[in-house]
Amino acid sequence: MNNPQSPNIRLKKRPANIGSQGSSHTVQNAKQRYEHYLALAREKALSGDRVGAENYYQHAEHYFRSAAASAPSAQKTDQ
């Protein structure tokens, strides 16, 4: 039974296995978005809008962390 006060929301499902090409695409996309939001933050900071700059810096940080988490590890340990 539908609740009249809650909207009917459909969520998109992500595929369980993205594959190596999808993973590298995800990293590149996150890096591009990081650079984009960093540039926007710098513009806001130069114009004197500290609150707007902080907002964009937080967005940039999110994509920086996403890229780092999605990237294959560059160092392999030999043990």
Rank of each mutant, 00 (worst) to 15 (best):
M1W: 06
P4Q: 01
P4G: 03
S6L: 15
P7R: 15
I9Q: 01
R10H: 09
R10Y: 08
K12P: 00
K13D: 06
P15G: 15
A16L: 10
A16M: 05
I18E: 03
I18L: 13
I18M: 10
G19H: 05
S20W: 05
G22S: 08
S23N: 11
S23R: 15
S23D: 01
S23P: 00
S24Q: 08
S24M: 05
S24A: 06
H25P: 00
T26L: 10
T26H: 05
T26M: 09
V27Y: 07
V27R: 13
N29H: 11
N29W: 09
A30R: 01
A30G: 00
K31V: 03
E35G: 01
Y37E: 10
L38S: 10
A39E: 08
A39V: 02
L40N: 15
A41Y: 02
R42S: 08
R42W: 01
A45S: 05
A45G: 01
L46G: 01
L46W: 00
G48S: 09
D49N: 15
R50T: 10
R50G: 01
G52S: 12
A53Q: 07
A53K: 07
A53F: 10
E54G: 09
E54Y: 08
N55K: 15
N55I: 06
N55L: 14
Y56K: 09
Y57F: 11
Y57T: 12
Q58N: 15
H59R: 13
H59S: 14
H59C: 06
A60V: 10
E61N: 15
S66F: 03
S66N: 01
S66M: 15
A67G: 07
A67N: 02
A68S: 14
A68R: 15
A69M: 03
A69Q: 12
A69D: 13
A69Y: 07
S70V: 01
A71C: 08
P72N: 14
P72D: 12
A74M: 04
Q75T: 02
Q75A: 11
T77K: 09
D78E: 11
D78K: 12
